[in-house]
Each structure stands twice: as C-alpha cells, then as structure tokens.
Write a protein that binds this DNA or RNA. Structure first.
Lengths: 175, 175
DNA sequence: GTGCATCCCATTGACGCCCATATGGTCCCA
DNA sequence: TGGGACCATATGGGCGTCAATGGGATGCAC
C-alpha cells in the first residue's frame, strides 16, 4: 500500500514543488521554508509552542488554519497549510473515484487528518490524535520538511535520523 | 600546513564543482574557496568567531545566511550558503521524490539542517544542535572544504586527519 | 456544577545588537 | 635596523528585546 501511496504522492509532487508564485517570489521563498528542528515542552494544559521560525513561515503564506495528518511513512504528524490538503484532493479527483488507490488515499488524508488552529501565543493543543500516533508524551520535536513540518516524539526522531544517516553511509554516498 | 591540507582535500575527494558563474568568475573563485583550518575558543555566551578568511569568502559570494547541517559521514557540522541546500534539493528532485532514499535525504537536509546568521563581529552561536552532534564543548576547529567549511571538535578532527593519512599511506604502498 | 478549551497577562531565560579590550602582526620612519 | 604607530582579528561583556513557558480567569458544553 505504501508503494501505491508513494506513487500518488509522486504525482502530486509533495516534496518537489512548493507554493505557487513568480520566480521572484520563488527566490524569496528559499528563505521561507520549514527548516531545522527544535524540541519544545508540553505544559500542564497540553499545549506546546510552535517554533517562532515555523510560525513566521506560516505567516508569510497567510496560513491561518493548519492541516494535520498522520504521515504515510514515519510515526509523525505532518502539518501544513490547507494547500497541502488541496493538493491531495486534486490528486484523488484526477483518477477513478472508485479505484483502490483513491479510496486508500481518501481514508488516510480525510479520515486521518484534522484542522487545527494556533492560539494567540502560537501554541497548539497536543491532542490524543497526535499522542496516540506519535508516542509523544511531554515533549515535541518540530521537524522542518521544506513545504511542511512534522511533530515527532524526540527519541523517535533522533533514531530515524540516525538510521537515515547510517543508510546513506552504507550506500557510500558523499555529501 | 598547506601541504597537510592539500593532502586532506585529496583524500576526502572534494568534488570539482563549486558555485555557478562565468569563466571570468571561476578564475576569481579559485582565490575564494574555503581553505585551511583554525581553532577558536567559545566564549561564556556560547559564541565563536568564524575565521576572517572564511568570512571574506562568504562575503565574496554575498552569503548572508548560512546553511548548516549534520554531516553524513563525519561527526561535524557542514556550513555553506543557501546554494548548498539547493544543490541537495535538486538532487532530491532528480529522483523519485517518495523513494525511501529521497525521504531520508529530506529528513537529513531539511530536518537536520538549520539556517544561521553571523553577528556583527562575525561570530556564530554554538547551539546544542551543534554540540550534541560534534561533541564540541569549549573550542571549535574550522575546516575549509572548498565550497563549504566544517565545524569539528578539535581532537576529533586531528584523529580523523590521522586516520585519513594512515589509509592514504596504505593505499600508496599497494599502488 | 464539572471538565475542557480559549483568552489574557506575567515571568524568565536566551539571543541579537552594540561597544570595549586584548593580542598579534605589518608598515613606516627615524 | 629597531622602535613605535597603526590596524585587523579575536574575545569579553552590558543591555534590550523577544520567544518559550507558566498560570489565572473567562466562556462553553455536557
């Protein structure tokens, strides 16, 4: 199933193309991707601050509502603007509505997705939806992924990163 | 020292491709690679001066923001201009965006990368992001790598250098 | 009422911006 | 040729601002 989904995403261009805009804007956009990672604490009320750098990227794209869904590959929640969902939906619409692929895709992006809003201080509620899927308990690692960002359980992120690095080393690839 | 560095670059196989530009500019560029190494101290606030020679290379390429990422091979932070990140992204775009390889690559260069800025005096903050990965505590060795430079824990750099020299010697005997 | 989410304000600790000092090297001129 | 002025770099530290966090108060639903 993952492979089929991967093909869907390939076509929808999740990680290839970012937001629309002129070349001039694309120049500027280089500086406004989701990048780096940071770990913040969850307070007694279950809130966590989204890193300032990520918030300013959201602001630059006038994103008010956040679309969150359970990542297809990693035990992480992926977060982006509504355009992220729209891209998925365009992809579904492009093919046979009754195909298994479209069905599974919809199951994941609609059934496994929610809209969230930040409070006035730029914090979001860490719901059971997030906790259950990621294993997050008292700390959240925010991970930039260019056109979106992800919420990870800190140790899980470190482990995934280490594994990715190890596989690159094995493959003998150089920077 | 220059001889030592020449060897190091030879061993590590620095690629021949640098920044884009005209032949005229390429002539000039020869003088503006990151070369040599230097060890500076971290002050009480966790800052360290980037060697002047490196700063002038950055200035010649109008690099304002530094892209830093955790090296794939060594326990070092690699630092370059935004073009470094773009090169990685082109590499990702060139292959199936949702292959495990591309996904891991994104996890490393986006999730494991940061943009940093120098202060007015040409210093950068040595964050936990850097310390944790390199083992740096109170001193930083800056190592030129032609189109980028690296931050090393001083002893780790000496050790890696020694090992590389040793392997080079062995290779020399065989051939 | 009781539980939960939102709004608002307070605290504090980190980082950016600015200026001061030390240190080593170069150049000029007697 | 030797001494001293001058300069660039590295380093130290004060201070204001802002992000991250904590917690009270209010509104809403069950």
């Amino acid at each position: 199933m993952l492979i089929r989904l991967a093909k869907l995403c390939l076509i929808s261009g999740v990680s290839g193309v970012f937001w629309s805009g002129s070349p001039r804007e694309r120049m500027f956009r280089v500086m406004s991707r989701f990048l780096s990672n940071a770990t913040n604490r969850i307070d007694a009320k279950g809130r966590v601050s989204v890193p300032s750098a990520f918030r300013s990227v959201l602001a630059q794209h006038n994103v008010q509502e956040l679309y969150c869904f359970q990542d297809f590959v990693f035990p992480a929640i992926s977060v982006g603007g509504p355009d992220l969902l729209e891209r998925f939906e365009r992809q579904i619409a492009a093919e046979d509505p009754f195909s298994p692929d479209a069905n599974e895709m919809s199951l994941l992006i609609h059934g496994g997705g929610v809209f969230m809003k930040l409070d006035a201080e730029g914090r979001l509620m860490v719901t059971d939806f997030i906790r259950g899927f990621t294993g997050i308990s008292d700390e959240v690692t925010f991970v930039g992924r260019a056109d979106h960002f992800q919420l990870w359980q800190p140790q899980a992120f470190v482990a995934a990163q280490a594994q990715a690095r190890g596989e690159r080393k094995l493959a003998g690839k150089r920077s």
